[in-house]
Each structure stands twice: as C-alpha cells, then as structure tokens.
Design a protein around this nucleic acid. Structure first.
Length: 688
DNA sequence: GATCCTCGAGTTCT
DNA sequence: CTCGAGGATC
C-alpha cells in the first residue's frame, strides 16, 4: 500500500501534517507541562495516529521537532532533571480491533526468533496497563534514593520527596528469608495511579475547597506527583504498581519476567496480582477478553493490557527497535471516556409527571456505541455538575451501559453558552410545573390530563411486567392518543382492526396481531393488574404484597389508609398514594370499565412445592445467565418460595452470577455471600 | 433519631 | 444501573 501510493506529495498532506503538529504540541504543553488537558487520551491518540500515518506515508514530512519524535513533554524548571541510566521506553501500541493485536504480536515474535510453524507456543506474561504516570525508583543497597518521572524517556524529573510520601512504596526493600538477596542497585519501573474511589473523594474535597477539579485519575496522579510542595502530595491518595526494571547490579537475574516480578513482590514492592503467564496467541486473546469483562470491576482505571515475552533470555535476543522493545506490546481497549459537546438540554415528561432534563449530545463513539443522549436526572444534578448548553463535557459509559455526563470542562466554555433553566410549564400540556420542598424532581401538575403522562401511563399498562401487550409501542400510542382514539386503558379493548390499520407504520397484519394481543391480556393476575394501574409508589413488589393481602380488587378499593398500612412494606406514604388513587372518581370509573371489558384474575397461586434450600431465602441476580432469562430465573426462585431482591446486603443469602456480572458480584465477594452459577441454582431449585 | 435495606422510577442503545 | 426516598429496625 505504502509503496504504491508513494511519489508525489499532495499539498494538502503537508498542510495537514503541519496542522496536526501544532495541535499536538499545544495539547502536549497543556497536558504534560500545565497538567490541564485540553483533550482526552482518545482524541490525542487519534490526532497522533493520523500524523504518524501521514509521516509514514510521506517520509519527507517528518521533522525533528515532530511530536511523534518524543515520548513525553518538556521538563519543568522547578523540578530537577534526572538522566535515566537506562532509558524509559514506551511500548508499542497495537491499534487493532478484536484479537488481531495478540495474533500480530505473536507472529512477529515467532518470526524474529526464527521459530518454525510446528514449534511449541511462546510463553508470555500478560499484565494490566495501568492508566497513571510512569515512574522509575532507584534503590541503592536496598534504600530508595531517587524517584524520577519518565519525562521524554531520556531525562525525567526528580520527584523523590513526593514519592517518599506514597505509603505503598517501600523506603527500604525487605530482605526476607528464602527470598532472593536484594541487589546492590535496582531501578524499579512502575506506574503511579489513583484508584477510582480515592479519585472521587479527592475531587469532592477539591470542590469543597473551591479548587479546580481533576478531569481523570491519571491527571490527578500526575498533578499530585509533580507538586512542588510535598506536604500537599502527602495528603493525596497515590498508589503504585511495579512492572519492570531499569539498571540493576549485584544479583542473580531470574530466568523470566514473571520471576522478576515475584522477586519484587518478595522485597515488599507492590505488584498487581491480575497478571498471568499464558501460552501463545490464544493465551493472550483469552487474557485480553477476561480482563475486558472485568475492567469495570477493577478499583482503578486501565487503558489496556500489556503482553511481554516471559523469558528474559528471549527478550534479550529480540532486543529493541528504535525506541521500543520488540518483546512487548500494549493492547488497548476502546476508550470509556470521550469528549463531546452539549448541543441542547431538553426535558422529558415521565409517567408520574417527573420532568427530567436530558442532554442532547453531538454523537460520540464511546465504549463501543455511539451516544447521543444522556440523562441529567434533575435540576440539582445539572447545577452540581455545572453543565451549560454549548459546554464540552466528559461522557462515560458507566456500569457497562448507561451513558453519563461526568463533568463539564469550564475552561472550554464558549461565550454564548447558556445555563439550563427548568421550565415553569409542562412542555407537553402547558400546565404548571411544581417542585416540592425537599424533593429532587419537578413535576407536571396536570396528572392524566397531560398527554405525555397519559401516553406513559398507557405504555406502562401494556408493559411486559404489567399486562404484557405485545406490539403496543411508543409510536402507536403516540398516534392513538394524539388522534383521541385512546384516552384510558379501557379504550384499548374497544380498538378495532380498521381503525388501527389506518395508522402510519401499521398494516392489516400488525393491526390484527395487536387486537389479538389485547384480547389475550384479559387473562392476568391481580398483582399484575394492580401494578399496571400505575399507582404512585406502588411497583411490582408492593403490587404483589397488596394482591396477596387483599386477594380481591373490590376489597382493596374499599380499604382505608389504616388497613393499607397493615400490609408489609406499606407505610403512611404508600397507603396515602393507594387510598388517594382509589378515591378518585375517574380512576374508579376506568377500573369498572376494565372489569366490564372482561379482565379477570387467575386464582392466587399457592406456592407449589417449597425447596428447602430456596424457601425464605433472598437471592440477587446479576449478569447474564447462559440459558435462563432474568425473568425466568426470578419466576422459578419465587415459585419455590424464595425472594429475589435487587441489591446485595448482609441479608442476601445467595448471589446468582452470570457472564459480565458487575458491581453486585464484587459486593457479594466483599460481604462473603455465597455465589452460585446457573447450574448450582438449578441444583438448589430441584433439591427437595 | 439514625442507619440499613429495599423498592420505585427513570434511562440508553441495538 | 443508579439515585432518591420510604419503611423497618435498633
């Protein structure tokens, strides 16, 4: 490809290269020198990659001062420069999709070593790539004498006084019985980082002190370590992991990289335990995948994994290529944080009238999907994060899925940015919006007279956990309500095929299916029906409690607040909501209309057979189970007398974990709660 | 009165 | 999944 397209140098390539160099230099300066990043890593990497590609294709564009020709930034005047005796190299990054990074690396290594196809697989160590600040620690006769940042790889900065304040870094290496003797001199290479929880509290403290917030843990770490005042650094929650070595004299080098890390650990240096010795490309692929799934559960940020040839002899044989070792590569994951712009902040009206601000974002690819919307929850949240329309914001995919606006970059706010103002009237119906004292949400006061709320109420009525009407989606409900065909849930049972088929995006077939689905939903349970009504503060669980207690819709409707409070988990607030709902004449009319339309309830099921290991026990489901859906698993546990709850606590008996399990699994491990997989759950359910 | 535990409600994208 | 808030418990 390069060979064919070499030749004439297009004018726009030269100007683009110049532009990229200027941008990157500006970012370098603010990121490394001022500790105030103007772009995030992903954006920087993208610009950097583009320039690298351009220079690779047109070598005449390459200049000595190009940002691609150096590893880091300038040395500040205030910290003393330190020349590294063994340069601190960077590691080549595989910019690939999927598994090819591991395969490419393995192929290169085998080729360089001259291995035949049928030769046994190469042994590698695989480690986490911490997202922090690279550091070199020099120990002489086991005593920490100097700590230096990477700087440009050849010369860094002396940060010894600050590093001495980091508690996990030993000031003197331990000499334990059975461990290798401590070398005369040893330079330990590793990463200073801040774990996520500490980062959050650090930012909270910064905010309380009206100090500038840190954009991410890596930047906070860099800022702290290069503090001129080590008393401030001492108060910062810095951590460290060792992963490599610079100069060393006076010890018998182990045979493998892994053995070296074991020796480090024996001397009291922190070494991360998520590393593994694996075999061949497949071993690397498995590790990459495993860590990718566990990434969110780690207490600190990583931006990928690192593969290294395990044998130190083979490492030496492979040697270096300009500034990078041939025996190691970094394999990155897609960025979980990106920068984008807030195009607008709109509000949505929920089923209960809650007015929720939503940020409309300039589309941005983050964590594997394109994000265009992110909820801002409520007015206080917008204020707390100080998000204006027009702001550049950090967007993250938190907890695997839901996009979140993390914070706004105040220094990038344009002059014409506008603050968000909570509307005083409902965007759907124009009724007054009210926010009660000590409530976080503002609500439309029109109730079901508000079309938005009526639509949401109907969708809730039809939802899977309520009456489960298939095919009644948002688009259809919008049209039916706007055309005044549908006003209450009872109207659903009067819908006919011709009227439906006249709607947009609806044919005869779909219309007939919908009418049939509505007909089928008449057969339901009292608990589902109560839930479907959408009474405030009554969810699935409370609806079930009410159904089990009253067993008859008419008895429930007649109950006063005192009787309602006899039900478990019903206190004054819920009792008031329920009583008020059934006191309303319109609601009563709709209910009798529904019953007249033929809704009837299956007799309340007595628990079948109770499994001894299940009855009375509390389960929490997390992750994706191999065969059962979440709802099926829940139904099966409940059928045997167990209870399924949403969050893990001391009272949880079992956590059932599937693939990609999240924070709940971690919490279960912390609390020592028993963890089951699907197979173990089935055994428990079948046991009598 | 404080603390812990659950539930309810709202939300994204494929 | 996460937050806020209702209910139970000590």
């Amino acid at each position: 490809m390069a060979a064919g397209s070499d030749g004439a140098l297009p004018a726009d390539a030269a100007s683009r290269a110049q532009e990229l160099r200027e941008q990157l230099e500006a970012h370098n300066s603010s990121y490394y020198v001022l500790d105030a990043p103007t772009v995030l890593d992903a954006e920087y990497d993208r610009l950097f990659g583009e320039l690298q590609a351009l220079e690779g294709r047109y070598p005449e564009l390459l200049t000595v001062d190009s940002p691609t020709q150096r590893v880091g930034g300038k040395v500040l005047d205030a910290l003393q420069p330190v020349t590294h005796r063994v340069p601190m190299l960077s590691i080549q990054t595989e910019t690939d999709i999927e598994d090819s990074g591991a395969v490419n690396f393995d192929n290169r290594v085998r080729k360089e070593l001259g291995l035949a196809e049928e030769a046994p697989p190469v042994e590698y160590t695989a480690e986490l790539k911490f997202d922090g600040l690279a550091i070199s620690l020099r120990y002489e006769q086991g005593v920490l004498v100097q700590a230096a940042t990477r700087g440009d790889g050849a010369t860094g900065e002396d940060v010894t006084t600050n590093v001495r304040t980091i508690r996990v870094i030993p000031l003197r290496l331990h000499q334990r019985a059975g461990a290798p003797a401590v070398p005369d001199t040893l330079e330990v290479r590793g990463e200073i980082y801040i774990d996520r929880r500490d980062f959050e509290s650090l930012n909270a403290a910064q905010q309380a002190a009206s100090e500038k917030l840190f954009v991410n843990p890596r930047n906070a770490a860099a800022g702290c370590i290069r503090q001129l005042d080590s008393r401030i650094a001492a108060r910062r929650p810095l951590s460290f992991f060792a992963y490599g070595m610079g100069e060393s004299t006076g010890w018998a080098l182990p045979a493998t990289h892994c053995g070296m890390l074991d020796a480090f650990a024996a001397w009291g240096l922190p070494v991360n335990t998520d590393r593994a010795v694996v075999s061949g490309a497949q071993g690397l692929i498995d590790y990459h995948r495993r860590i990718g799934e566990a990434r969110n559960r780690l207490p600190f940020d990583i931006d990928g994994v690192v593969y290294k040839v395990n044998s130190l002899a083979l490492q030496q044989q492979l040697g270096f290529r300009s500034r990078e070792p041939r025996w190691a590569v970094a394999h990155k994951y897609p960025a979980q944080e990106e920068l984008t712009e807030v195009l607008d902040i709109e509000v949505q009206v929920g089923r209960t009238g809650a007015i929720t601000p939503v940020a409309r974002l300039k589309p941005v690819f983050v964590g594997g999907v394109t994000v265009t919307n992110a909820t801002l929850h409520n007015e206080d949240e917008v204020r707390r994060k100080d998000i204006h329309i027009g702001d550049t914001v950090v967007v993250r995919r938190a907890g695997d899925v839901i996009p979140e606006v993390v914070r706004a970059l105040a220094e990038r706010r344009p002059a014409d940015a506008r603050a968000f103002v909570m509307p005083q009237t409902c965007p759907s119906c124009g009724a007054a919006v009210r926010r009660d004292e000590d409530e976080a949400v503002a609500r439309c006061t029109a109730g079901l007279y508000c079309p938005a709320q009526r639509k949401q109420a109907l969708l809730h009525f039809a939802s899977r956990r309520a009456l489960d009407i298939d095919g009644l989606g948002e688009k259809i409900v919008d049209q039916l309500v706007d055309n005044s065909i549908l006003r209450t849930p009872a109207d659903l049972f009067r819908l006919e095929v011709p009227a439906l088929a006249a709607l947009e995006r609806m044919g005869d077939k779909a219309a007939a299916n919908l009418v049939q689905a509505i007909g089928q939903c008449r057969d339901t349970t009292l608990a589902r029906f109560i839930y479907a009504l959408g009474i405030r503060n009554v969810g699935e669980s409370t609806a079930r409690d009410l159904a089990a207690h009253f067993r008859d819709i008419n008895v429930l409707m007649a109950a006063d607040e005192l009787r309602l409070q006899q039900v478990t988990d019903v206190g004054p607030v819920v009792a008031q909501s329920v009583a008020a709902f059934f006191a309303d004449a319109h609601n009563r009319a709709v209910i009798s209309d529904l019953l007249a339309a033929g809704i009837h309830f299956a007799p309340i099921a007595e628990p079948e057979q109770l499994a001894p290991g299940v009855a009375g026990k509390t389960f929490v489901l997390t992750g994706t189970l191999p065969t059962l859906s979440r709802d099926e698993a829940k139904a099966r546990i409940e059928a045997k007398g167990g209870k399924v709850s949403g969050s893990v606590s001391k009272k949880t008996h079992y956590v059932v974990a599937g693939g990609e399990a999240g924070s709940k699994l971690v919490k279960a491990q912390d609390l020592g709660v028993a963890i089951l997989d699907e197979a173990a759950l089935m055994v428990l359910l079948e046991s009598m």
